[in-house]
Design a protein around this nucleic acid. Sequence first.
DNA 1: CCCTGATTCGC
DNA 2: GCGAATCAGG
Length: 172
Amino acid sequence: MSWTDERVELLKKLWGDGLSASQVAAELGGVTRNAVIGKVHRLGLSGRAKTTTTAPRARRTRAQTTRPPRTNAGAAPTVGANALKVDSKPQAAPQPRAEKKPETDPVVIPISKRASILTLTETTCKWPIGDPGDGDFHFCGHKSEASAPYCKYHSEIAYQPSSDRRRAKKAG
DNA sequence: CCCTGATTCGC
DNA sequence: GCGAATCAGG
């Protein structure tokens, strides 16, 4: 299976649509996710979402090409001197991924009881509203299920799979 | 343990 | 150019 123009187009379309490499590979068929990723790279589409590009990890050199025994692979502190680590901002409260991804579910919060941090109980929705450092910061305050941290509304949007869609297993 | 993308090298 | 192997983070 070679990369025809149509294939590439579809690849770009799917990839641009936010599908994962595996998904795109499944859609195209006959290719593995590695192939897709490789192609995507060559096309220059790799810069879609910054994921595991936190730090410039040591690039493999030719010496390692000969089947590294993966004994201490990655343990080489070649870039350790570069001190590229950034300061972790102390997040006062967990900010659920509600926004940022309007394509999933633009759940709108109907009402807010403006529960203060002191009025939270085990049945109080602890969904943070507003910026933790802001004076207007408060919690949802809705009645949560049993011991759920969030109310019905927020429980749904709070739980988001790491990947958007799980590929459906094909029967047969 | 499963997933994800990123990178590199041999063909 | 292509794709497996591999790595690394979640």
